[in-house]
Each structure stands twice: as structure tokens, then as C-alpha cells.
Amino acid sequence: MIQFDQVTKRYPGGNEALKNLSFSIESGEMVFLAGHSGAGKSTLLKLIAGIERATSGSVLVNNQNLSKLRSSQLSFVRQHIGLVFQDHKILYDRTVFDNVMLPLDIIGFDRRDAAKRVRAALDKVGLLGKEKMMPVRLSGGEQQRLCIARAVVHRPTILLADEPSANLDRAYALDIMELFKSFHQVGATVLISAHDETLMEDYGRRIIRLREGQFAS
């Protein structure tokens, strides 16, 4: 599903975020990505989503070599990926419902079927009663769940979450982990990054540990 082959990412200015990294993630796997901030977790996720391009090496997603795609083609790759951002990236000028509608608008889903999908996604994360609210009135945990609803509403085959439980207390964080687990159970490939390893260890899944852009042993 996801394959890294000797991937190096160097940012302008010389900062090497990933150094000669090779690994693969099977379809339907649920994998954790651990490491301190600055270890390269976010960069790794951005490479999979085609938001950044590898400096050298190849990144294969769904058997497509992302470095060989034009940026217009990367958009289509991204349409099959659900992204949960550390900073939510919620749009505050529209309702909860319209935020979740955005990915369906982008892939051009029929509006009536789309409304059902949006409600289903909101129901899944427990925000169904708040669909008409503006996002500013949601708590931090609710905003994170809104972001998750938006990431899964178009039923992506890959779900990437960058520190989804950061800034949340443990009870909320566990809630969110359970959500990801349920998406994994319906067949999605899930990759979750966190700097707090205690949460991951309870799940007994594969953990990729990064330190300064390399595997930490």
C-alpha cells in the first residue's frame, strides 16, 4: 500500500528531515509512528499525502510513484487519502456540516447522497447534534473529532493522522484512538503519529520509531 525506498527529504536551507528511509506498510494495516517533535513524523506523513516531495528515493502509494506525478495528478492521489491534521485546519467561516461536506464537494458527490454521508460521519464521531453549529463553539476535542469526520467522510483507503491526540487529556485521546481502530476494522490502512508512546503500546500494533529522520533502534 505504502512503500518508501531510500527516501531522503532535505528542506531548503539544508535541514535533513528524513535520511535514507526504507519501509513498507501493507494494505489494511494499522501502524503507529513515534518520535519526539522534529524527528520527521510530520514530514513522513506529508510525503505519503504528496504535500511534500522526496529529495531522493521513491515513495509509492497504491503502486503509484508520487515523485513521478505532476502536482495536478497528486490532487487525485490525495482524494483517496484521509488527513487528520495536528492543527485541525477547520474552516471557521462555515458550519460543522459544511466543513465535513468539503471533501465530497471536491470529488463531486451528488448533494443529496452527500448529506447522508456527512451525517453518518458526524454520527460516528459523536457530533451529529452539532451539525448546524459554527466550529468556534466546539471544544478542542470536538474540533479534533470534526477534523476526523472530514477525513473519513469520503471513505478513503488510507487514513493519516498527525498527532491527533496532542493537547487532549487521556480520556479524549483514548476515544480518538478507538475511532481510528474502528476505521481500521472496516479495511482502511491507518497511520497515526504521536510523541506519547504510552497510548500506542496498549494496542499491540507495529510502531515505527523515528529519531532525527532515521529509524530509532
Binding site: 504535500i51 490532487s75 485546519k89 471536491i106
Partner: peptide, 14 residues
């Protein structure tokens, strides 16, 4: 620009 940036991130074409 926020809207454009988010839309691009989740797969909107130009």
C-alpha cells in the same frame, strides 16, 4: 486563502 489551502490539502484540483 484558508479555504483554498485546506481544499488543496484534501485533494482539490486547481
Amino acid at each position: 486563502r484558508d479555504e483554498i489551502e485546506v481544499a488543496k490539502l484534501i485533494g482539490a484540483t486547481d
